[in-house]
Design a protein around this nucleic acid. Structure first.
Length: 464
RNA sequence: GGCGGCAUAGCCAAGUGGUAAGGCAGAGGUCUGCAAAACCUCCAUUCACCAGUUCGAAUCUGGUUGCCGCCUCCA
């Protein structure tokens, strides 16, 4: 079975084969930690998690590197404006370093809530400054750089395939249509490799360099870190679709200029999340919804968001609304109930994997991670005439990719002591056909946040 | 202005030449002391619109309309 993935470089699906047999080097652009991640950001991380799980399911060993951008992103014009970390620090009255560490922790909690597997390597931009400087020196020696009053820039005119990822028509781009121009740049697409600290300003985050005190441009970190941990020529690089035209285009330019080798073979991009009304969610637009405000605070299982993300293919914009959350929440609860009853079925043990459904499942995941189709296969499996044992074996196997926590779905064995007592009392009341008492106990149990489900095989108490 | 993408039932959405997956919501039913859960059945003669190609089109071509993204930071 071959794995087909869509490659932004070629704009088509192609059979994926790694540079080394059975091993995949995966680099995914991580968060900029000056604020919480919003659920649009998290959609991309869910997509990347699915990719990693699918690679693993296909038998590849995956080395996954994710960066934490804790310096260097500017608020204004490309390479002009204010550093977001420093701005966030002023907003919250903390140091830039405190801001970075606080939001890094918050991000790791978010991905844990979404059952996203942590990368093999986390790396911080601020911990790899020396590597970034070394890479810039190579570019300087090879003559790709020039100096302006505010920094050291990469001359994109000297890199021949600059638009190979974005496929843009450079003549037609309109610099200054929306923002102020930087008159010292030779080409409008040129970007900063190193920015000088503004004269007379002591930044919280600044380093010495061969060109002067300052901080790295925001593209160089990904090149330096991916090469440091994965080598010069790598397999898959992922990120959000909004990175195609600028960030990833510049990464390719500077990396390939430095090494003379192709950078990554596959570039994959997750489409953005739109909030109802069709607008994208943007961190800089203060309109963002976080996992905390949208799910956790309302008592909604955050995995409902993971489930929701599976309803839309990763390359299509996803519509987000209260209604779609409710749909996902109901869908997930339904799935959990089905899996619970499979687990408690007397015939649940010892089932083999249903080969035909597994084949359909593989076909769907290996067709460019077609999760909507995977979810249809799941439903077909549950509705099929297979035995409970086979259904359970199948769905638990699929959950290696789904990551919806189906294996750890337990019934009432972990109930608090007080609850256990109520449940036993209610069982006794029902046996005595004392319906009034039984119903009253059911209300008390529900008040504790649990749901009682009577069935022929006995009562089940679950936490919804 | 340039480049790119999208338009499928009340909502979300798969499907890229062979006659519309799946989920949510909704309707009816089975089971049950009741409820919940589960299960069964039903729910687009039709894929934004108009032409064209084809034996055959949601799927290909041309045009129209609408929406979105990138060209500022952004997942």
């Amino acid at each position: 079975m071959t794995l087909n993935l869509y490659n932004t470089l070629t704009r088509r699906k192609a059979v994926f084969s790694p540079l080394f047999p059975d091993f995949v080097g995966l680099y995914t652009c991580g968060p900029t930690v000056y604020n919480f991640a919003h659920i649009g950001n998290l959609r991309t991380f869910i997509f990347e998690d699915v990719l990693k799980r699918v690679l693993t399911y296909n038998g590849f060993a995956v080395k996954h590197v994710m960066n934490i951008t804790d310096v260097g992103h500017l608020t204004g014009d490309r390479d002009m404006g204010e550093d977001k970390l420093e701005k966030g620090a002023r907003r919250e009255g903390k140091s830039a370093w405190e801001i970075a560490s606080f939001y890094t922790r918050a991000f790791r909690q978010d991905i844990a809530h979404l059952n996203i597997i942590e990368p093999s390597v986390w790396c911080r931009a601020t911990e790899t400054i020396a590597d970034q400087i070394a890479l810039i020196r190579i570019l300087e020696e090879k003559g790709y750089t020039y100096r302006t009053r505010d920094g050291l820039y990469f001359d994109t005119a000297r890199f021949k395939d600059y638009t190979k990822l974005s496929h843009q028509n450079l003549e037609a781009l309109q610099e200054g249509a929306r923002v102020e121009r930087n008159p010292e740049k030779r080409n409008m697409t040129d970007f900063a490799l190193w920015k000088f600290s503004p004269p007379g300003v002591q930044r919280q985050m600044e380093w010495d360099s061969p060109w002067g005190v300052g901080f790295p441009g925001w593209h160089i970190e990904c090149s330096a870190m991916s090469m440091k941990y994965l080598g010069d020529h790598l397999d898959i690089h992922c990120g959000g679709a909004d990175h195609v035209d600028v960030h990833h285009t510049n990464e390719i330019a500077q990396s390939e200029a430095a090494t003379g080798k192709p950078f990554f073979n596959f570039w994959m991009h997750g489409a953005l999340l739109n909030i109802a009304g069709g607008k994208k969610m943007a961190k800089s637009d203060e309109n963002f919804l976080t996992l905390e405000t949208t799910f956790l605070k309302k008592g909604i299982n955050p995995l409902a968001y993971r489930y929701a993300a599976f309803q839309t293919h990763y390359r299509k914009p996803m519509e987000y609304s209260e209604e779609s959350v409710a749909a996902a929440q109901n869908g997930l609860r339904h799935l959990y109930n089905q899996v619970r009853s499979l687990k408690t079925a007397p015939t649940a043990a010892g089932g083999g994997l249903p080969a035909d459904f597994q084949a359909k499942f593989c076909e769907a995941i290996n067709d460019d991670l077609n999760m909507p189709r995977v979810m249809a296969v799941v439903q077909e499996l549950l509705k099929s005439s297979l035995s409970d044992a086979e259904k359970l074996a199948g769905i638990l196997d699929f959950d290696r990719v789904l990551g919806l926590g189906l294996a750890s779905l337990d019934q009432d064995d972990a109930l608090p002591e007080a609850l256990r007592k109520l449940v036993d009392q209610r069982e006794a009341a029902r046996a005595a056909r004392n319906w009034a008492l039984s119903d009253q106990l059911r209300d008390e149990i529900q008040a504790m946040g649990y749901v009682v489900q009577d069935s022929r095989d006995g009562m089940q108490v679950i936490k919804p």
